[in-house]
Amino acid sequence: MTQYILGIETSCDDTAAAIVAEDGRVLSAVTASQIDIHAQYGGVFPELASRAHLTSMLPVVDEVFRAADLTHKDIKAIGVTRGPGLIGSLLVGLNTASALGLGWGIPVIGVNHLRGHLRSVDLNEKRVEYPAIILLVSGGHTFLAHMDEAGEITYLGGTRDDSVGEAYDKVGRMLDLPYPGGPKVDRLAKTGEINIPFPRPMLNEGLEFSFSGLKTAVSKYLRKTADPKHEDIAASFVDAVIDVLMTKCRRALKNNPAKSLVVVGGVAASPQLRAAAGQLCTDLDVKLCLPPLKWATDNAAMIGLAAWDYVKLGLEYDPIPQVRLPIHEY
């Protein structure tokens, strides 16, 4: 009998469950979004996120089985995000997964959320050719890593302050765009002109990033400019971000063996980033691997597929929360 993995993801503000086959097919995926809860705060309010996870978790699990027309008897194991993430949010998913595993008599595997993002590209279709350079850009993370055929990951460099997603959301707030601001900044940018010379922090320094200064530059520009054109600010900000990200990707691709560039995380949904990454890969003759938009942001299907890697490698990580968990760890 074919068996599947139930993935559970609650690291931040999405309550998600998915049923995933070994080859990456997603039989069903359900996500309860908390955007409406956090919109009034302009960002994720951890205590409210945790409360909402508890209310939504079992209905989401129930729905994912109904949508796939499967029962727990079709499940071989549960993969659940063990970190990194908000502790109150992680605990709801981990305790739920542990109890489901105990009640159903199946193993529960704690999965690194970041490895889930890396695997999101292979959901429903195998896309990545290894070795690969991975750019993870989300609200919580920004880094470059190298991954070989065996799944070994080498961290190449990351942000020293804000993540790209954080910078997008903060600039979105400055431009009076509703939360979450990132996608709206991209949309606004398309209507403006790139005519403001915002800084490109750490452009010529290795593979590290810094976005705090860029965010501050936008804030200062808004303060000192009479009647600022928000669409031009958005266009110039996005241009600066993309310039930094692509310069670092180009450097990483030139200095490391790579057949693919993998761009994952919520910001991978940015049309400007997707277009720029496509151009870079054409220039350097490497394959561009992007997750379908629905798998770019946090989801449980990617956790389920990552959990299959753990099963194949015989890795048994306890479902215990790790608020900080580096990419090279499982």
């Binding site: 945790s50 409360r51 508890l54 978790m57 079992l58 699990v61 129930d62 727990h72 109150g88 605990l91 709801v92 305790n95 739920t96 997964a97 542990s98 109890a99 489901l100 105990l102 009640g103 159903w104």
Partner: peptide, 13 residues
Amino acid sequence: RSGVSFANALSFS
């Protein structure tokens, strides 16, 4: 929340 999440899910399963 840890205790309640666990209890609810064990009850469910």
